[in-house]
C-alpha cells in the first residue's frame, strides 16, 4: 500500500533509522539486485553571472564583477572534448541567470556540441534557467523547450527544486522559480518527450511536513507523466552563503540524511532510481547511502564549480568509485543518462 505524506512525516519524526533502512534496502534489492550504477559526466558552468542572488548560493556574481565570467562556445566545446576523452557520456550545462544572452546563444551552443560530439548526451539547464530563457525571449515555456530540444537538448536535470513549498522558497530564493512553475515546466518537458530527474535539498529550514509535501508533489506529477527518471537528495551546504551567515540554516546530520533517504525510497513507488548525493555528503556517507535505499551513486563529476564554491570538494575517479561500491559488497556498473548499463566492473 502506498505511503501517505502524513505517514511519511511521522516516519521522518519517529521512524527507527535501522528499520527504515532495512525496509528501503529490501525495496531496492528487489528492483536492482546487487548492481549499483554511476555515471561519468562533466558539469559545465557556462557563467557565474546571475540576476537571482539566492541566499543559499556561494557561486553567483553580479554582472561586471571582477571574477564574473561567461564561456564562449569554443570554451564550452573544449570542455566537452575533455569529457569525451575522459570517458564521459553526458554533459550537464548549467549557469546563472545571465541578464541578456538571448535564446540563440543557447541554441548555438547545443547545436555546436551535437555537431562535434553527437554521442554526448546533453542533460542540461535547470527549470529556473529555462523559465528565465523563456521570459527573456518572450516565448512560452513549451516553445522554449521545443526550440532547445530541436537544437539538441536531451533531458533536464532536476536541480532548482530545492523544497517545493513556496513558504520555504520565498525565504531562501525569492527570485527563483516558484513551486507551480517548476512543476508545470517539468510537466511540459515530459509531455514533449524530454525526461528529467527530480531533486530535493534538505536543511533549508523546512519542516518535516514540508519535506513530505515536496515528495508528494513530485510523486503526483510522476503519476501523471512518468517522466522522472530518478530522485536525488542533497543537503544544503552552508559554507560561504548568506543564508548560513544569518544562522538560518545548519548542516543536516548524517542521521537525518539517511532517514530521509530511506523514507524517499519507500515513498517513491513510481520513481525508479534513488540517488544519494556523494558530492554533498562525501564518499564516506555516500557509500553508506547504498545500505539505506540508494541504487545509484550519481556521477563522477569531472568538474563542479557550484558545490566547490560552498566549500565542499570531494574528488572522485572511476577507480575509486568502483572500489567504494565493491567495498559495500555490490557490483559496480557505469550507466548512461537513461540508466542503461554501459560497462560492468
Amino acid at each position: 500500500m502506498r505511503l501517505s505524506a502524513a505517514e511519511g512525516a511521522r516516519l521522518l519524526r519517529e521512524g527507527d533509522l535501522l528499520a527504515l533502512g532495512r525496509a528501503a534496502d529490501e525495496v531496492r534489492r528487489r528492483r536492482f539486485g546487487n548492481t549499483v550504477t554511476f555515471l561519468v559526466d562533466r558539469n559545465i558552468n557556462y557563467t557565474n553571472v546571475c540576476v537571482n542572488e539566492c541566499r543559499f548560493c556561494a557561486f553567483f556574481r553580479r554582472q561586471g564583477a571582477k571574477d564574473a565570467y561567461l564561456l564562449s562556445t569554443e570554451e564550452v566545446l573544449a570542455k566537452v572534448r575533455e569529457t569525451v576523452e575522459a570517458g564521459g557520456t553526458q554533459v550537464m550545462i548549467q549557469g546563472g541567470l545571465y541578464p541578456d544572452l538571448g535564446l540563440p546563444y543557447y541554441e548555438d551552443m547545443l547545436r555546436a556540441i551535437k555537431r562535434e560530439f553527437p554521442q554526448v548526451v546533453i542533460h542540461s539547464f535547470t527549470a529556473t534557467e529555462i523559465q528565465h530563457f523563456a521570459r527573456q525571449a518572450g516565448l512560452s515555456v513549451r516553445e522554449t523547450l521545443l526550440r532547445l530540444q530541436a537544437a539538441g537538448l536531451d533531458s533536464l536535470p532536476g536541480g532548482g527544486a530545492e523544497i517545493l513549498v513556496d513558504r520555504v522558497r520565498q525565504r531562501v530564493s525569492p527570485k527563483k522559480i516558484m513551486t507551480e512553475d517548476w512543476l508545470d515546466l517539468m510537466r511540459t518537458a515530459h509531455e514533449i518527450g524530454m525526461e528529467s530527474t527530480a531533486t530535493m535539498v534538505i536543511g533549508l529550514g523546512e519542516t518535516l511536513e514540508e519535506r513530505m509535501e515536496h515528495m508528494e508533489r513530485i510523486r503526483a506529477l510522476q503519476d501523471e507523466t512518468g517522466g522522472f527518471r530518478a530522485f536525488i537528495m542533497w543537503t544544503f551546504q552552508p559554507g560561504h552563503t548568506e543564508l548560513a551567515a544569518h544562522g538560518a540554516a545548519e548542516k543536516v546530520s548524517s542521521w537525518d540524511y539517511m532517514r530521509t533517504l530511506a523514507v524517499a525510497r519507500l515513498f517513491f513507488d513510481n520513481v525508479a532510481h534513488i540517488q544519494g548525493s556523494w558530492v554533498t555528503q562525501g564518499e564516506r556517507v555516500g557509500q553508506l547511502t547504498l545500505a539505506f535505499g540508494a541504487d545509484d551513486a550519481g556521477s563522477i563529476m569531472l568538474e563542479e564549480n557550484v558545490v566547490r564554491a560552498a566549500g565542499t570538494r570531494y574528488e572522485m575517479s572511476t577507480r575509486k568509485m568502483v572500489e567504494l561500491i565493491r567495498g559495500a559488497g555490490r557490483e559496480a556498473a557505469q550507466r548512461d543518462t537513461e540508466y542503461r548499463v554501459l560497462k560492468r566492473f
Partner: peptide, 11 residues
C-alpha cells in the same frame, strides 16, 4: 571516523 560516521555508529 569523522563526525557523520561516528553519529551513524550509534546505530
Amino acid at each position: 571516523l569523522t563526525l557523520p560516521i561516528a553519529q551513524l555508529a550509534l546505530g
